[in-house]
Design a protein around this nucleic acid. Structure first.
Lengths: 175, 175
DNA sequence: TGTGTTATGTCAACCGTCCTGACCTAAATG
DNA sequence: CATTTAGGTCAGGACGGTTGACATAACACA
């Protein structure tokens, strides 16, 4: 069992499939891969800036949505991010300690913690969104029909149907 | 320091910013958020299926690219994924042990480990890509100009310019 | 009043996926 | 031969997520 083409992985003994997958109308490899790479680079810009603050992507998401909807309560944030309060906890604490967010007791229901950005948090969030918007703008300028609406509708169509109401709610004022 | 609107987060003493960010041509909140949600759901389908095998997203990415380019060597995979061999190690081992991939010594350079899918690995990869392609197809059908080329060019335009050659290389045969 | 529920926070233990640094073998290369 | 290269492995750590259990304060209601 030696020689140039000896099978190195002995376990499970499957034979190698040497041919690449055949072209198939229902297997859109280019778009699947482009979507993967596009998202990777879409967040890479922000990653770099966040690193200077010792923040990660979790901080970015929290900062973004609190800025977008000042006065959001913790439960709403958990629903949007689809994470548990245990995993939100440390992230929220760090953002408050660093002075990017503040928590204020709900005026009617004092159990609630209304989340607001500080000016510092607003500034950082705007900076991050600006970088991402610039990339998107550039990508739209590079297409034939410079049709922002089609891109918006395409992205919306990628979202799970049951989630679309929630996302629409988040975008109430802007189109 | 009590009362309905008492400031709960005392540290860093920033004042809350209550207004949502003003509309701004250079801050495309809808597209930024749609891209986030779209990617989340783009991945979610696959996550569910992978869970049945005890696999995560790292396994998915390895499985995908090895299937796409059978005979890929480890170094190429590391370059595409932009991770270290230490973090690839366990993932690759599990995929080999579960019989989804095999490693074969390079016919010319026997230090190399050529990576191939087994039929089992090919089947799983195709299944995963099929789910993702179906979502993409549906999203394209929902837009005005059902223009796949524009979506492809948009996604390509989102990719960091220095990375585009690498991505193009991966897509040689298909358009 | 008291009892139960809700909003939030916290402790502990765990997992997956990445990292750096150090070291090893086998094979190619000069 | 010595060196470099391809790949693998061990150790330790970080981050971001999970589940489960429990605590506190405030609301809601009989």
């Amino acid at each position: 069992m030696s020689g140039p083409t000896a099978n190195i992985s002995e376990s499970s003994a499957g034979q190698p499939v040497v041919a690449p997958p055949e072209p198939d109308e229902d297997l859109d490899f280019p778009l699947v891969e482009l979507f993967f790479f596009a998202y990777r680079d879409f967040i890479a810009d922000a990653d770099g800036m966040l690193e200077e603050y010792g923040f990660g992507r979790a901080h970015h998401r929290v900062l973004h949505f609190v800025n977008r909807r000042p006065g959001m309560v913790v439960a709403e944030l958990l629903e949007i991010l689809r994470i548990t309060k245990q995993s939100l906890g440390p992230v929220l604490r760090q953002l408050v300690e660093s002075g990017h967010l503040v928590q204020i007791a709900g005026p009617e229901d004092r159990r609630q913690r209304l989340l607001y950005p500080t000016q510092k948090g607003r500034n950082l969030s705007i900076q991050l969104t600006h970088m991402q918007s610039r990339r998107i703008k550039g990508a739209i300028e590079g297409i034939k029909n410079k049709d922002r609406e089609s891109i918006r509708d395409f992205l919306f169509g990628m979202i799970e149907p049951e989630e679309r109401d929630l996302v629409n709610g988040l975008m109430e004022q802007d189109q």
